[in-house]
Design a protein around this nucleic acid. Sequence first.
RNA 1: GCUGCUGUAGCUCAGUGGUAGAGCGCCUCCUUGGUAAGGAGGAGGUCAUGGGUUCAACCCCCAUCAGCAGCUCCA
Length: 722
Amino acid sequence: MVKVRLPDGTVLEHPDGVTAAQIVEAISPNLARAALAAKVNGRIVDLATRFANEEIDFRVLTFKDDEGLYVARHSCAHVMAEAICDLWPGTKLVYGPPVENGFYYDIDLDHPLTPEDFERIEARMKEIVKEDRPFTRYELPRDEAMRKLEAEGNEYKLDNARRADGETLSFYVTGAEPGPRCFEDLCRGPHVPSTSKIGAFKIMQVAGAYHHGDASKKMLQRVYGTTWPSKKELRQHLQFLEEARKRDHRRIGQELGLFTVDPLVGTGLVLWKPRGAVIRRALEQAILEELLRRGYQPVYTPHIGKLDLYRTSGHFPYYKEAQYPPLFDSDRARELNTLWEMAAAAGGGPAGEQERALWEKLASTYPELGKAGYPLDAPAEDRLTRIRAWLAQDDGYLLKPMNCPHHVRIFASEPRSYRDLPVRLAEFGTVYRYEQSGEVSGMTRVRGFTQDDAHVFCTNEQLPEELADCIDLSRFALGMIGLNDYRVRIGLRDPDSDKYIGVAENWDLAENALRAAVRAADMTYSEEEGEAAFYGPKVDFIVKDAIGREWQLGTVQVDYNLPERFGLEYVGADNQTHRPVMVHRALFGSLERFVGILIEHFAGAFPLWLAPIQATVCSVSEKSADYAREVFDLCRKANLRVELDNSGERIGAKIRKATLMKVPYILVIGEQEAQHRTVNVRTREGKQLGSCTMPEFLAACAQEIVTRGAAAPGEEGQASPA
RNA sequence: GCUGCUGUAGCUCAGUGGUAGAGCGCCUCCUUGGUAAGGAGGAGGUCAUGGGUUCAACCCCCAUCAGCAGCUCCA
């Protein structure tokens, strides 16, 4: 007897040997038609799964469930794999999982697949779907399965099998039973009942991918497909992709003249053009005003720092590959630094061969060093100290990869009392990171960028309040833009790991404080153990844009590490010295990336307060040109960012031009307006707001700017000048 | 960094082993037109850079640089 408990609590009884499909059929034939798989006791299984002598929690999965869709996507990958193997018999399959929006299959095939091939593959897939063959699972004992795979000679599948757990390995046949003419694949499953159930699909692209992501392995072809419950949803997804393509900040940034990247300047180094600079400045000003209200103190720090600053912070040479190479103004500094790197790499022990050879050379080149001597057999720690002492006279510099060490040194520049804390130092700090060439893209992944950075130095007791304020500030910043759809991720330490610095009670304090602040703010959040930095727990803000894409923006991080490394202290009420705790936080992350995201979020149609050009004055003809200029001057005097179009074009062309530039307000100035001393206002959305006087228009704009109105993209501004 | 694709006018892109084209933009002129493209004329290119093959290279080959997609990475 099998007792089946449905999600609504109903319990059904079935005889032993019943399949999931039969259980569904008994619930409802309609449901049976839609069924793709079942979730039994929390595990997703094939509908062909049999049960005997047990009690099960049972849920049917259809296209309405993410898990059902997931199963269909996986099955679709099998269908595609079969199609490709049919068309190119030499194909070796590697690995074909479902992913967001669809699936991919990695294949080893010498013929490079092209979009023309996609059509052939899809055509073959459609035939397979039409044949409506069942997916049939069978299992073999591990050793038998391995023999079978060895005989087939696909080393990738053998590798997959070696990595798989369990006493048996499962295979899926696309057909009623295994046989020489049936497609089959080593696969954990589960799958939909038959090939007609995989939904609507399309092969999207092919790209290179390494086996296990290992660049030393052969490059495979990764064929991506997308799968949806129906053609309608497939179409919607393709439309979404088209929409995302249209919003691409690289394209809009070019069209609207916001920024450029010049190979002569350098890959990943953004040049903000005047119109882009307007957006950035407006954001910086809005943030700055709020920071001042909250007791932050703006600081400025240089773009480079001595290498020893980063030796102290630990960022050098740990992140060496991600930094621009250090600047040296002497060979001595360069060579001493190399010696230092060698000693640092020695793992604490005595000098290695290279280090000894370099020292020989240094000792002869620089007599004063040779005279001072170098303890080659002493612990690395001693050698490092010695080298740093020498470098103190003449060291290299590093383009700063982060602002924290500079801010730390500002904190350390004067004695601090507990009465001075918290110290909140803020800076739009530009940092440089040498991202891999393949990573650099537009404004969202660059090599030089400006963080809206701040560091709070406080006591442990103050930490909860400071974290709460950081989180509140992040919410304020996002709300200012109208980005109100976000969640947060709390990164906690892994309690079983010992990689974390600092004492457990401080971690508990910080983690609880972050959790409490997030809860108090009533935000959607997830807690993720093991996601903390080694130096402290953190909170990341993940924001949804206008078309539903998620971006990680701000972050609040507790740091017990840097105060320790730099020996920061303050004098407490007890007249003893104490170590402050540090909070790193960025609201938007970097201004480059954030503006890039905003361009896509608003599709270039920025709200009035951010719009590079807020209004364009368009004369209807030369007869109204003088009044148009008067209107233009009035706007400019009112600090509106305005342009004048007195060109010989017709009014339609002028309006089109301004609309394409996403200018919020177009002021149409003809003889009627000149006569009545009014302006006729049209929005970039094409809405005619009618006529009003200049004071009315300017007041409405001022109001809209001050309230940062029209934050929701695609909607009308709050203020209506008409 | 890896693999693949791409690089032609300011932008978007055609094109051919015998030294180059369109549309938009730009300039000039005509037009004085009322809510998304008025008309005509003109200027503008070392065909990414450096090598090679060839009688001849924008085109074929190699390298470099840059862009795109994916992989890997992001303190």
